[in-house]
Design a protein around this nucleic acid. Sequence first.
DNA 1: GCATCATGCAA
DNA 2: TATTGCATGATGC
Length: 380
Amino acid sequence: MDRNTLVSFGQMLTERIAACEQAIFGYAGGEFNINSTKQLGEVLFERLNLPPVKKTKTGYSTNAEVLEKLADKHPMVRQVMEYRVLTKLKSTYADGLLKVIGPDGRIRTTFQNLVTATGRLSSTDPNLQNIPVRTELGSEIRKMFVPRPGWVFVDADYSQIELRVLAHIAEDPLMQEAFRTGRDIHTATAAQVFGVPPEEVTPLQRRHAKAVNFGIVYGISEFSLAEDIGVSRYEAKAYIDSYLDRYAGVRAYMREIVAEAKDRGYVTTLFGRRRYIPELKSSNYNIRQGAERIALNTPIQGTAADLIKLAMVRVDRALEEAGLQAKLILQVHDELIVECPPEEAEQVRAIVTGQMESVAQLSVPLVAEAKVGRSWYEAK
DNA sequence: GCATCATGCAA
DNA sequence: TATTGCATGATGC
């Protein structure tokens, strides 16, 4: 870790947090613990009389979605949103990571191989599988993950591995065709769902199609899709219907995997990993529906986990056999990170992506893309 | 000190 | 009323 930069980043956050706090206390007319959802709820919904959008089982919800809806109703709300972003980065990442830097300046996670229900690894103490990447400020943290002096990172990730696994397992001809011809799957899906040529797909259509692809893997409901992309339930239903009309293999898979799971009591991955799902027989509708989503998702997520685990073994072996100093140092579900001297980087890149892509022969190609960089931020 | 809750980060 | 995880601070026991 680049400890000094991490310390400076933490100090910058401290200053910005203090400014937020002062603004919030000014609007509230006094101090309170902004971290307490109970106290914050009282200020927002009782003192300032903002409309309570949603409840939790213990009181008012103040989560990001709720705050977003209230943002135009009182200036304090945006300050609270910024406060949440900053304190998250400070406590979990800046302070949290500083605490676990070893005497040699390196951070080591502990991987658990037997925790998740699907076969994924999990990472603890610290969790290196949830380092921020989606926002500009958050991704600054990744600039502080650096290799040993003079070395570089090679970061390789699978492209759309779960949808490729779905295309394979579901034997869906259209989805397979999209991957075989190297198309952008979300654009191809939008073209199918909205009935337009790929080159006429608008950014909004692509975004909606991406959300549907994402949701399908998890066992979507029209309600949740509507929530996610901000359309009516009827529109969301139309998207899903159109999707499953076009990707008929996916529709059949969804039906068959649930039937099989109910019959056998478990589902399996392509490599035979098994997950029992006793909740399929629950008398509670919600629990039963949840179990069906698990039956749908587990073979997909679990097969992807099997694939990358096998790739890890082969990558490690191939790097060793090539006589390289390169070392596999991290896995993040669909991504492998290797540390190596810069003169090895191009060979490492070829070995890692080559092993990841050839780990299994599915009905669609597996594609891995790699970058080289002097930090995790640069290499991703 | 431990458990639970709400929240938010990742794939 | 979308899958899988883990860390944090607050809160209560």
